[in-house]
Design a protein around this nucleic acid. Sequence first.
DNA 1: TTTTTGTATATTGTATACGATATACAAAAA
DNA 2: TTTTTGTATATCGTATACAATATACAAAAA
Lengths: 220, 220
Amino acid sequence: MRINIENINLRDQIYEILRDMILQREIGPGEKIGEEELSKKIGVSRTPFREALYRLEGEGIIEIIARRGAFVRRQSRATIIEVLEIREVLEGLVVRLVALNLSDKTLGQLQKCLDNIKDTPDEPSQLIKFTHADEEFHQLLLDACQNQMLKNLMATVNIHLQFIRLRTVVIPGRAKKTIREHYEILDAVAQKDASKAEALMRRHIASVREYATEHIENME
Amino acid sequence: MRINIENINLRDQIYEILRDMILQREIGPGEKIGEEELSKKIGVSRTPFREALYRLEGEGIIEIIARRGAFVRRQSRATIIEVLEIREVLEGLVVRLVALNLSDKTLGQLQKCLDNIKDTPDEPSQLIKFTHADEEFHQLLLDACQNQMLKNLMATVNIHLQFIRLRTVVIPGRAKKTIREHYEILDAVAQKDASKAEALMRRHIASVREYATEHIENME
DNA sequence: TTTTTGTATATTGTATACGATATACAAAAA
DNA sequence: TTTTTGTATATCGTATACAATATACAAAAA
């Protein structure tokens, strides 16, 4: 018998470092990832570095062009819509699964998450709080859904989403609308009405998608 | 200006070779993929070989254990259900998108696909034909949906499905039921009733999932 | 001046080499 | 006989070395 200690290897660590750097815009869309330069800065050789790059390419985060280099993909309007279409059905599945298998602990966490933000005024200075609350609500649901593969897929989808999330919440009056919809979803989940929860979540996400479809002309 | 010739590099080729080998059961579940041995047999060094392995791990196809090796993942009952839950909503999205954007060519191909098989007797000796027709129907829909990211996700999902597809169709009377359901879906698509098409597809996939839930005790 | 072409340089793609660890097996102890 | 422990071997993880090509820049021609 043997305890499976964490798989400590460089490629996994580098993968996460690069993913986070792209997420945090330390490497922006269209920018090149120089192997020699960045791997040296991190302090590893190119071999595990390139393994990480290849996984990122598989997830559609970067594009590797032979003998030219690895580039962070630009999010075109079409790509954003594609991601949001997928997000709609996957988030719907998440909430359906949660409704079918709800623990008191999860219910409490969701409730608290919404209650914490509900009295915050919808002002520009507070927008980051709404963004965090929004992300936390969806993340709590994801953590509670008992489908590991779905969690993995959503992790990738969320990377793509990160590029537009701030822009979608930042609309006058949108923050309060989001919270109202979250409460409705939570009610359905609490009643274990999986179909209703899924339908509400899909409409919630779809409204974000429709906004993006109309307003985002070209993402930089 | 520069024409983007196919990205000819070894890691992409090796990735496809390994994926197909696993798909065709040339390397079975639980089996080890020896780097030295197999890369030598293919005729490449371990470097691009390992890059391919790392992408496969990211897709959940294999598991890499540090200093032990890469192993084809066994499909547990829980994993199969996870995949089928995801497949249900993604296939639903596929058919919704196709209904919203249907070309005459696609409609013709789908029609022909079903007509070709509809008079085949539902006998054990013919089962492989039903399997092929089933795969072709779903693949035609996927090809026609205009969401590249969805195509990529479904490609991965389909690898996982490959392990159980034959077992799900092989039920007395199931083949004819499948064709009937496919015709109903096609009708909804032809009428451009996206919601109906999606709902029918989801029910269709869900019935496969329910069968798997009940009957598959432990996949080898 | 503008365009073209050749060469130097930098960077990626691939192979090989080296270091670390898990596994197998044999030998010794209980 | 059974269990434990030490060592040899094989295989994986990482680093380095070499090969191929894209890019930049300079020189020459138009």
